[in-house]
Design a protein around this nucleic acid. Structure first.
Lengths: 343, 343
DNA sequence: TTGAAAGCGCTAACAA
DNA sequence: TTGTTAGCGCTTTCAA
């Protein structure tokens, strides 16, 4: 049962026969400590197995903690981002913590708020459904990087993929293969609301534009689904019951896995219905899956987001916006359009 | 740029015309506040958009934060655990944070230490390479649940899968299919060191026993790999170059994906080499992957771990150990042994 | 039922 | 170079 008392800075000071301030300076590598002092203090720290309480430090300044809000722990793209973020923090004094949100909507706000309450020194928010003003206000208290969403701000930095370009790559590829009946399977209306700058909103908007420009306005068909593979599976099954498309452009890879599952259950292959995802999660390149998708360099995004946070902490004040170039990974899940499957 | 000052309990007290203590009682739902008082305070809190600083609360008591150390963010089994943990915390005042470790060995200790430094009210550690004494000592200060590892303790609780039983299911299945040349692909020697109670150590040990009992001591072959899919792919490619097994029992599903990838690159199918994983991650049931594996109910484990933590916080002192029953999911990746592939 | 006041462990002026 | 001291924002006795 919890009982034993951990050493405090006071204990260390007593043990080393110095002041608390001296110990504080040593642990912060602050200016103005003699080698002798440093040595005595270090010895005392080791002897007592002392570790500074982050809460106490946070009250006076920084918590040496950076937080990342994760909208859906089950999506491997987000774990790529975290991997990049972790890498960027190697060798620094900062610890990364993840606050999982894991439900649509308001949950993201809750998780971000929880990070703020914990006095993290910086926050990465992954395209949550938050009003820009809310984030703006938060960003006046703590450095914030918004990841994925395209809205710009004077208060927070942004890291985005170029979703317009990514969608162009997808649509050109599908149209080039002769597809005309192309369905777009995407998230809820709320998530894709125009003008929010949400990546899914941009992909949807560009899908509509490309269909129109290709003279396929009559074939436009947008189907909504939830945020996990299972939702996508069910909604794909439903859409296959109706007039069958020759291609499905899915909002992201996790959802695309559900679509592939549904196609398999229906006994359909890539020759019948082509599928394109977005994100290039690891499994997409597995030979048995071989999902055509847009690589938007999740690790690079996470790494860059952390760098921006560190820069802000070190004093930068001009807002910075960073965009990564997407590239299309063409795989077996897309084939030339077959003859009209609905004779 | 960070600047504006957030409201403190002092501000709220002034706004409501009461003492700080009164505000504190209201936000903690403590005993002894009149409805009138509660109302005034609540109004002031809303008016000022006040949120208590967790750091300040932590200095006097609890941080209302529970932490989970994650050895490898890329492994979907761990995200299942987190999903379960998140669910268990719904409706409580506790916030879950994840500290990613993401490298073999000492990193786990670092991450757990970081959580402790942040004064979390409880810690779930996912089978890290830590000396039991170290954890034991930590557990005297903060409730700890060790997830996965089979060592028992008077100080911390444990949640485990029954790895001996899981391995029995795997080996009986493979032997029943007529396999004799069964390779076990597992983690490093460090991770599988006997007596550590690490799940991979148990799986290895039972593999050896089952091979011996089946009179296949001569066919025992243990191959080591790293902790991600890519390592497993490379090490599988290497082992296929030598005398080819008819079946590979892989330490977990993430690694098994690498093995499947390698087999595909080699032009081999399940008819040539059967593969079994462990964990039943979501993708394992995808028809294109169809990996035979052991389901050990990751969500349930995460949920149970959090419950144990909450119980400890509420005062339980007797150590508790919980074990989940594994079950074998037989899929297409295992087929009856073919004739000797090495004529 | 309410409030005054001490103190949690640390950092940052400032003084010595 | 070192030490003294005043808080940071809360919770918690203890009195009123």
């Amino acid at each position: 049962m919890p009982s034993a008392r951990a050493a405090t800075i006071e204990d260390v000071a007593r043990e080393a026969g110095v002041s608390r301030a001296a110990v504080s300076k040593v642990i912060r590598n602050a200016y103005g400590v003699s080698p002798a002092m440093r040595e005595r203090v270090t010895a005392a720290i080791d002897a007592l197995d002392y570790r500074p309480r982050v809460a106490a430090r946070a009250m006076r300044g920084s918590s040496f903690t950076l937080g990342i809000e994760m909208p859906h722990i089950g999506n491997p793209f987000f774990t790529k981002v975290v991997a990049g973020a972790t890498a960027a923090l190697q060798g620094t004094d900062y610890q990364l913590i993840i606050a999982p949100a894991d439900v649509d909507g308001e949950e993201g706000v809750r998780a971000i708020g929880a990070l703020a309450d914990r006095q993290v020194d910086g926050i990465v928010a992954i395209s949550p459904l938050v009003a820009p003003e809310w984030l703006e206000r938060l960003a006046t208290r703590v450095p914030v990087v918004m990841l994925g969403r395209h809205d710009r701000s004077l208060a927070y930095d942004t890291v985005t993929g170029d979703d317009a370009e990514g969608t162009r790559l997808v649509m050109e590829h599908l149209l080039g293969l002769g597809h005309r009946r192309i369905v777009h399977l995407t998230r809820s209306e709320e998530v894709t609301r125009p003008g929010t700058g949400n990546p899914h909103a941009v992909r949807l908007e560009r899908y509509l534009v490309h269909m129109q420009e290709a003279g396929l306005a009559d074939h436009i068909r947008v189907v909504r689904t939830g945020l996990d593979e299972e939702s996508a599976r069910l909604d794909t099954l439903a859409l296959l019951d109706e007039q069958r498309p020759t291609a499905i452009f899915v909002g992201n890879d996790e959802l695309a896995l559900g679509t592939l599952r549904a196609l398999a259950e229906f006994g359909l292959s890539a020759a019948d219905v082509s599928v394109v995802g977005y994100d290039d999660i690891d499994i997409a390149s597995h030979p048995a899956i071989s999902l055509t998708t847009v690589d938007q360099a999740g690790e690079a995004m996470g790494e860059r987001a952390m760098r921006l946070l560190l820069e802000r902490i070190q004093g930068r004040t001009e807002p910075t916006h960073f965009s990564v170039e997407p590239s299309l990974k063409v795989r077996e899940s897309t084939k030339p359009a077959s003859a009209d499957p609905n004779p």
